[in-house]
Design a protein around this nucleic acid. Structure first.
Lengths: 213, 213
DNA sequence: CCGCAATTCATGGAAATCCATGCATTGCGC
DNA sequence: GCGCAATGCATGGATTTCCATGAATTGCGG
């Protein structure tokens, strides 16, 4: 019974290791996809599912730790490193850069399965977070340039007349932009909009000034 | 010229190590305080400064990794582990639990100083964050029980009449509580209050409903 | 030229928030 | 009993936000 809600990528140049890991994962009803090199893995079409990347440190084309840094900016899954010749500085570096675990061969099936489970759970959380941020980011990008200027002023807490003064426009125009921002960002209240702005890390550049409760 | 804006704690049962580290730090104008055991360190009065804890893994009274877990809930400084007999699982565990580095003897002065620098910088950031949260937390604790009920409703974005209905009181009374909350939390605007509530991780339990813009 | 989006401004008016002030009740500590 | 804090409610009124509707200008693409 092969589960369809996740996938585990195995990148190791040693075919016996790949086979052994595939069999182990298969026996747990987990889907595995194997690659003999980092280049293969990077180039491959991958299913859009919560995942885990089991990565050998000594690869023929690149050091596993260097691949970790290389793919860090993309939405690659959490890494579980495996290695036959690891050293402590490598393990420290791997973990500090976000790897879930660093296992030296021979490692127990239990340790590997635990690490994989943690990696998939972490990827699920991260993917949900990214999906939500992507929606918010898309909405933000649909704002007009002016609306994008109004947003930080509004979520800073300025009165409409104060925000209007900042931009050198009438309060009435500011209100129009404000309403459009609320609508486009799907915010039911100012409180909603403030939280959305926080999620998008929009900087707060002002504070409501005295005389404006 | 001994600097007064930080301190480095050294916990190692080997007196020669303590001396060597103290001398090294001294030569960099950094203040060091040494302890021969974990118990001594934990019991000692410590200056309230940004700090770094250089911690030996093999201590006479407790394993350094266990001490890390033990002090995790208090405001202890970031840890740089040093060890003569480290293994990879220990280093993984140390870093995953927040240690800045895990250095095996013999380690270079440069590596140690770099780790110490990073630890102190991290402690500075964390201490600033904790200080701010402490102020906000204190303000929150000074709210009356009723005001503490009103706060999450207000920052959820409910209209005053909606929040009042939630508590079964008049809108006028809700407004009084609202104003008191704003004042006690030192919020100049609703936007401020929403951000404060986020910092305090006050859960959002409601959303403004249709019919209430 | 036309249509559209972006930006600007306005009016009239309703709803909501905010403020100052006043009053009342209850429970607690001195 | 008194004073205080917590909680509740009210009035009158000012300010702010929100809404619907209307109009104008500019720049761009078809």
């Amino acid at each position: 019974m092969m589960s369809d809600d996740h996938v585990i990528f195995i990148v190791d140049d040693d075919e016996r290791i790949r086979e052994a890991l595939s069999d182990l994962l298969d026996s747990h009803g987990m889907r595995a996809v194997s690659f003999a090199s980092a280049g293969e893995y990077v180039s491959a079409d991958k299913p859009d599912l919560p995942a885990c990347l089991i990565l050998d440190v000594e690869l023929p084309d690149i050091n596993g730790l260097d691949l970790q840094r290389q793919i860090a900016d993309g939405d690659h899954p959490p890494i579980v490193f495996i290695t036959g010749h690891g050293d402590i500085p490598s393990s420290v570096r791997a973990i500090k850069h976000g790897a879930v675990d660093f296992l030296t061969k021979p490692f127990s099936d239990a340790d590997l399965m635990a690490a994989i489970g943690a990696a998939i759970a972490e990827d699920r959380d991260k993917r949900a977070e990214r999906a939500e941020l992507s929606v918010l980011g898309q909405r933000y990008r649909e704002l007009t340039p002016r609306e994008r200027e109004v947003l930080p002023l509004v979520v800073s807490g300025l009165l409409n007349k104060q925000a209007a003064a900042e931009l050198g426009i009438s309060e009435v125009t500011l209100q129009i932009h404000r309403r459009n921002v609320m609508h486009k960002m799907a915010a039911a209240s100012l409180a909603d909009l403030v939280r959305i702005a926080e999620r998008l890390e929009i900087p707060i550049t002002h504070s409501r000034r005295v005389g404006g409760n």
